[in-house]
Design a protein around this nucleic acid. Sequence first.
DNA 1: GCCAACGTTGGC
DNA 2: GCCAACGTTGGC
Length: 155
Amino acid sequence: MAHRYWLMKSEPSAFSIQDLRKVRNQTTSWDGVRNFQARNFMRTMKKGDRVLFYHSNAEPPAVMGVAEVVTEAYPDDSAFNPKDIHYDPRSTPARSLWDMVDIKLVRIFPAPIPLDRLRQEPGLKRMELLRKGSRLSVQPVRPEEWKIVLKLAGS
DNA sequence: GCCAACGTTGGC
DNA sequence: GCCAACGTTGGC
């Protein structure tokens, strides 16, 4: 089965794509997702799936580069820690409510693709990111949308 | 900082 | 099961 495509949002003030470049193995666990739809998407991710890394709440908001799924969904242990900002007592190691995946940096685009640039592309009209009021932090990307975005990135 | 859009919570 | 109140997201 062919790999699937996704988009994942991060606020660069919390964790940027430059941060991802610096961490060990350029790999991080995508913890802290506390939205069921986003969690469910992560649960369907397969090793090798490709991810657009998006900076939200940024100036400008933009697609920054590409990452890949290297570990499929497993319990998000940040939910178990009362001191963690994402603590959720409903989730326990025995019965994990929240999951995460590991992603690894593939590449950072030479130039970010700003949100308003994406909006100019007729082929991206249906993209989840561009839907009015869309807030999903993990979302699927159609293959044809992926192709357009990568073309905009100059690949 | 504002606020529209959305998801979640909880009283009934 | 409804839905008002509330909290969050995220563009602007």
